[in-house]
Simulated assay, not measured.
Amino acid sequence: MKTLMFYELAADGLAKVPEHYPAHVARLQEFHRRGVLLMAGPYGNPPVGALSVFTTREAAEEFAQGDPFVVHRIVAHRTVQDWNEGLAG
Rank of each mutant, 00 (worst) to 15 (best):
M1P: 12
K2V: 15
M5K: 09
F6E: 09
F6N: 03
Y7M: 04
Y7P: 15
E8P: 15
E8Q: 14
E8L: 06
E8R: 14
E8C: 08
L9P: 12
A10D: 13
A10S: 15
A11L: 04
A11H: 09
L14Q: 06
A15P: 09
A15H: 03
A15V: 11
K16A: 02
K16C: 02
K16G: 03
V17Q: 05
P18A: 01
P18K: 00
P18Q: 02
E19W: 00
E19L: 01
E19K: 02
H20M: 02
H20I: 12
H20T: 09
Y21S: 00
Y21G: 01
P22V: 11
P22R: 01
A23S: 12
A23D: 13
A23I: 05
H24E: 03
H24P: 13
H24Y: 08
V25T: 13
V25G: 11
V25P: 14
R27M: 08
L28R: 10
L28A: 11
L28E: 10
Q29K: 11
Q29C: 06
Q29S: 10
E30P: 14
E30K: 15
E30W: 05
E30H: 15
F31V: 03
F31P: 11
H32V: 09
H32A: 14
H32M: 08
H32K: 12
R33V: 14
G35V: 11
V36F: 07
L37P: 14
M39E: 12
M39A: 15
A40V: 14
G41C: 07
G41T: 10
G44T: 10
N45K: 00
N45P: 08
N45H: 03
P46K: 00
P46W: 00
P46R: 00
P47C: 05
P47E: 01
P47M: 09
G49R: 02
G49N: 05
L51E: 06
S52N: 10
S52I: 05
V53E: 06
V53R: 02
F54N: 01
T55L: 10
T55P: 11
T56G: 06
T56N: 04
E58L: 02
A59K: 01
A60W: 04
E61K: 02
E62T: 13
E62Q: 13
F63L: 06
P68C: 03
F69W: 13
V70W: 06
V71P: 10
H72I: 04
R73H: 15
I74Y: 01
V75K: 01
V75T: 14
V75R: 01
A76D: 15
A76Y: 10
A76V: 14
A76P: 15
A76K: 14
H77C: 05
H77N: 13
R78D: 05
V80A: 01
V80I: 15
Q81M: 08
Q81A: 09
Q81S: 08
Q81H: 07
Q81T: 13
D82A: 05
D82F: 00
W83T: 10
N84P: 10
E85N: 07
E85S: 07
G86Y: 02
G86A: 08
L87P: 05
L87T: 15
A88R: 07
A88W: 10
G89W: 11
